[in-house]
Nucleic acid binder design. Structure first.
Lengths: 204, 204, 204, 204
DNA sequence: CATGAATGAGATTTCATTCAT
DNA sequence: AATGAATGAAATCTCATTCAT
């Protein structure tokens, strides 16, 4: 009879908002932003089209919120793992473990972000957000490689990051083509590669 | 003013066709398939909308032709390079050279294909085409690594491929964010890495 | 904390109702009926959307109530003024004074009514209401001019009314274009014009 | 077989454009801008909704074009008439004749412009256009009254203009309420009023 | 072979109105 | 009595595709 309290409304809004964003994330990641219509999102989320506009100003805004959430979300996997141990090799191992584990659970996020990053004009709007994120990640990785005594930690970090994303990319592609991809073996190989990396690239 | 021969007409058609495909490739790669309209392609190609339908049944068909052309195009960079020398290390060096050179010229192709491969329902239709392409590339790479005496050539090939695509991906992303990316250094590092790879990952 | 009496409730309702109508009037007059949404009215009135429907059946009904109120409101400025003095010239002066004073305070009402009267299908519904209002106003004005001895009191009344509304219309338009409008001078001129109007148009 | 020449296309476009604008003008003037949908315009013009967007970027743009056309259209009725005779009284008579004749033919234009001028935010965009138009009209009128020896030509011009628009406004309103309006009599009265205006308001 | 006007299906967006609380 | 989340119909707008010329 009496109206809901502001807190209850707030709660409802938060839930619904998350729900819609979750559904949109999956659809955007699966079919791309432009090929996903608001109608499809509404149907998948079992809400009306109108409601989505109650929560987001526009389709673009919905995407933007999604991106912001994604970027703010990942509170630096690197940082967290780096604090669990001080041995850089172990840090790397943990990092790899984490990343390869994440690949299964969070592939949707990764896929969406990668798709968007390839599309002109979408990421640009939020480039500052990203630059920060990228720089933070890189500096952590660089520090690890520094302490491993790698000759050129910066390049090593770049290469490491590229390998990881390349593996993700191939994994995704292969999966869509129904071709097996030896994720586990690649992981083991990468770990081995850095086991006593201290000397691997320095003989020059 | 003599009427053109059928052959000349044929030639003109082929030309036009290629021209339209080229323009479409660039636009698709830049803004994505769905965000590029036929009108935009027509305007960019300086032809009428109607003419495009004279050459392609539909927008989807245009994309399909683009993909087929791309796939058939690259007559295995790997193969070609592999024949220039028999020393596997040199082959790898040439391969890297070729790839890093291509990165500047053919990035558009790579970008489009990668975007499409992430988008559900587009590549699936042509999956057989791709599987073949991928398998061919892989087997060539595997052979190189085999002859270099790497312990697990298959995994090495996968990793190598992933690194390359990861580097491309990062390069593109960074470029869009106006951040410098040390392409040259990465290349040198990769070459060094394989210089005497024979022993690098085998100590286990 | 004693429960409110039914009378108090009634009072509150009346108050709220008027408040909403007042806010709606301003918004309708400013942006037009169709460009003003119930949400905007609710926000401006600091009540919920639902509450508005508690007081008015629909947006159309709200407008209708507004019009009825407006029409019934003005209990004939003309009549009132006419009773303050018996000299027709003084009556006219008072009328002009009143009208030009009202122009600042009640412009919103005038604007809304004029907008609506230009819009097909809105006033028609209430045409009987209006006809009455117009006829009453006219007959009062006609009587004044009659007693001033004007040769054609009816036409004079029409012309007088038209001048007044024309001035309002121009004043509003100019104001929106940030152009000064000599309201005071026009008023003085009008008064002068009728000072010894007895003879002004009769020489024919 | 062969495509139409650019000139033919240009002709088609011009015709259609005018046709759509004509239909839109009538509907906007009748029901107001916001209450008229593109669908209604399309249906009334017997074209598809899409075609309207082929000619106008948006509904707002259509309105804007309409306004620009209207404003540029009337190439100063005042100016034209002013040149037909040098006697200011005759000029005024011609002007009144012209205006009262126009009232029947061009009422739609007048109505639309008046409605729009009352609606905040529509005319503002084009305020410079209007200011110019208004100033031109006023200065011509002022010059006429100057030469008639009126004591305050500026105020007289304002009053004259206001009377005209007021008459139009009332005429329209009355017509919609199915009440007769003595247009002809008002015109005659106005003409008489200025016949020997030279002395009418100056006795003070 | 070539053009671009025209269509119509479907996308995005708005908003009056309902309803559970 | 009061709230604002939720709906759905209708509006604006886009664009692949057709077609007369």
């Amino acid at each position: 009879m009496s109206p809901r309290t502001p807190e209850q409304y707030e709660e409802i809004r938060k839930h619904r908002r998350r729900h819609i964003m979750g559904v949109a994330l999956v659809l955007f990641a699966r079919k791309g932003f432009h090929s996903t219509s608001i109608s499809q999102i509404a149907k998948a989320a079992k809400v009306s089209k109108g409601l989505i506009y109650n929560y987001f100003d526009s389709k673009d805004h919905l995407l933007e919120q999604l991106i912001v959430h994604e970027v703010q979300q990942g509170p630096d996997l690197l940082d967290i793992l780096a604090q669990q141990t001080s041995d850089p090799y172990e840090q790397l191992t943990l990092l790899l473990d984490g990343a390869f584990q994440m690949i299964e659970t969070d592939l949707t996020h990764w896929k969406l972000m990668t798709m968007l990053s390839l599309q002109e004009g979408i990421m640009q709007r939020m480039s500052s957000l990203f630059r920060k994120k990228v720089e933070d990640g890189m500096s952590t990785a660089i520090r690890i490689f520094e302490r491993m005594g790698v000759s050129d930690p910066l390049v090593e970090a770049y290469l490491f990051g590229a390998s990881m994303d390349g593996i993700f990319l191939h994994y995704l592609t292969m999966r869509d083509l129904d071709v097996a991809y030896p994720l586990a073996k690649l992981k083991k190989n990468l770990i081995n590669r850095y086991r006593n990396h201290t000397t691997s690239n320095d003989e020059k």
